[in-house]
C-alpha cells in the first residue's frame, strides 16, 4: 500500500510536469498576449514596456524556467488580464462548478443505476426497450441544445425555474455554497439536469451491459436456488459484480464534468471555472490556462486514485500494488 502511494505520487508529479510543458508550448503558438492587455492605441514603447512587465521579452525557455521555479515556491503566476494570482481566480470559481457537477452526478447515478439494472435483468421487456432508446437520445443530444430547450420550456414557457445565474448562497467552512438555500437549488436544477443527461445515459448503458453479463453467472442462479428474492439477487448479488466498469466511467465523467462544464456554464451564465477557462483562452491569458489545466490533471489523478480504492472495496480480489 505504501509503495503504491509512492508510485502514484511520482506518477502524478510526472503528469503535472508534462501538462505544464505541453500547455507552455501550445500557448506560444496562439498569439501574443501583449495585445490583449495594452490599449488599442498603445505606442510601440508602451507595448515593449508591457511585454517587459509580463516577462514576455525573454525566451520561452527562460519564461518556463521562471514559471517552474516560482511554482516550486508556491507562486502560480498572475493573470495578465485580472492582475490577480491565477490560482485564486480559479479557486474562487471552483465551488460553483463542483456543486453543480456533484448534483448532476448524483442525479445521473440515482436514475441510471435502477433503470440499468432493470433493463439488464429484463432485456426483452417493452419498458427496457423504451429505456434503451431514451438513453441513446441522452448520449447523442448535444448539451447546448438540451440546455436551450430546458430554458425555453421551464424558464420561458412555464416560468418554474430561473434561466441563469447562481442564486442565493450560504457560507460554510469559508465556501459559498448554493445547496444550502432554496433559491440556490432553484437555480442549480436546470444546469445540473443538462449536465447529467449524457453521463446518465452512459452509466445506464454500462450498468445494463454489466447486469446482462452477470445474469448469466452461476452464482446468480445459486442465489435464487437459495430462495433469495429477485430484488436481493439483482441488487445484492448482481449489481456489485457489475459495478467495476460503472465506477471507472463514473470517475472519468466526474473529472470531465468538473474540468469542462464550460458549455453548460456558458448557457446558464453559471459563474463557474469552466467559463473562466473559455474567457482566458479568448484572451490568451496563459498563466490562468496553465494553472487551470494542471489543476484539471491533478483532479483526474486524484479521482483515478479514489476509483482504484473503490475497486478494492468492491472486489476483495483486487489489491493495490
Amino acid at each position: 500500500m505504501f509503495g503504491y502511494l509512492i508510485k502514484r505520487l511520482i506518477q502524478m508529479l510526472l503528469v503535472l510536469w508534462v501538462v505544464s510543458v505541453i500547455v507552455f508550448l501550445m500557448m506560444s503558438f496562439t498569439g501574443d498576449p501583449v495585445f490583449m492587455v495594452v490599449p488599442i492605441d498603445a505606442t510601440d514603447a508602451e507595448i515593449a514596456q508591457a511585454r517587459r512587465l509580463l516577462g514576455l521579452d525573454q525566451s520561452l525557455l527562460v519564461q518556463y524556467w521562471k514559471f517552474l521555479t516560482s511554482l516550486l515556491q508556491g507562486d502560480f503566476g498572475r493573470s495578465y488580464v485580472f492582475r490577480q494570482p491565477a490560482m485564486t481566480l480559479i479557486l474562487e470559481r471552483m465551488p460553483a462548478t463542483v456543486e453543480m457537477v456533484l448534483v448532476a452526478m448524483a442525479l445521473a447515478v440515482v436514475v441510471a443505476i435502477p433503470l440499468g439494472v432493470y433493463a439488464g435483468a429484463n432485456p426483452n421487456s417493452r419498458l427496457s426497450r423504451i429505456i434503451m432508446a431514451s438513453s441513446l437520445l441522452g448520449i447523442s443530444l448535444p448539451g447546448f441544445w438540451v440546455g436551450m430547450v430546458l430554458i425555453y420550456l421551464f424558464a420561458v414557457h412555464w416560468g418554474v425555474f430561473p434561466s441563469s445565474g447562481r442564486g442565493d448562497t450560504a457560507e460554510i467552512f469559508g465556501l459559498r455554497v448554493s445547496l444550502l438555500t432554496r433559491d440556490g437549488w432553484h437555480h442549480i436544477a436546470l444546469p445540473a439536469i443538462t449536465l447529467s443527461l449524457g453521463t446518465m445515459a452512459i452509466l445506464l448503458r454500462m450498468t445494463r451491459a454489466g447486469m446482462m453479463e452477470v445474469s448469466r453467472q452461476d452464482y446468480m442462479k445459486f442465489a435464487r436456488a437459495k430462495g433469495a428474492t429477485r430484488r436481493d439477487v439483482l441488487y445484492k448479488h448482481g449489481l456489485k459484480n457489475a459495478l467495476i466498469p460503472v465506477v471507472t466511467i463514473f470517475g472519468l465523467q466526474l473529472g470531465d464534468l468538473i474540468a469542462f462544464a464550460t458549455i453548460t456554464e456558458t448557457i446558464f451564465s453559471w459563474p463557474g471555472m469552466g467559463k473562466l477557462l473559455i474567457d482566458s483562452i479568448y484572451r490568451a491569458d496563459r498563466p490562468v490556462i496553465v494553472v487551470y489545466l494542471m489543476l484539471v490533471a491533478l483532479i483526474f489523478v486524484v479521482i483515478n486514485f479514489l476509483v482504484d480504492i473503490v475497486y478494492t472495496l468492491i472486489d476483495p480480489r483486487i489489491t493495490l500494488k
Binding site: 452461476d218 445459486f222 442465489a223
Partner: peptide, 16 residues
C-alpha cells in the same frame, strides 16, 4: 429443496 451446482468455482458469489 436445495441445489448443489456443478462448478464450485462459479456458484459462489466472488464478492461476498
Amino acid at each position: 429443496i436445495s441445489m448443489v451446482f456443478q462448478d464450485p468455482m462459479t456458484s459462489l458469489n466472488p464478492l461476498h
